[in-house]
Amino acid sequence: MERRIYAGNRRYMQVVDMDWFIPIGAAIAFGLGALGAGIAMARIGSAGAGTVAERPETFGYMLIFLAIPETIAILGFVIAAMILVMI
């Protein structure tokens, strides 16, 4: 499989050979992370909306709580990027 990488000004999309399982691994790392974050955010979001409706002063907390599970997706992205760049 070929890998397309960015390589600076007007040089991007260089094509490099890559084993097929590398992008699959990267996709799993990011995909599952994002899926997990999505499920968590959906639950936090619905509970948060209810809480803010009852107590508007908790809006700040809710915004932060909502951003907490994104860490999983972000770490998934980092791992995926490292798989693609470093392996």
């Binding site: 994104e70 860490t71 972000i74 770490l75 992205f77 980092v78 990027a81």
Partner: peptide
């Protein structure tokens, strides 16, 4: 985990 969480600076930036 807290320290690794700062990786978001790079990830969101990218």
């Amino acid at each position: 985990g807290n320290i690794l969480s700062y990786a978001r600076i790079m990830a969101i930036g990218t």
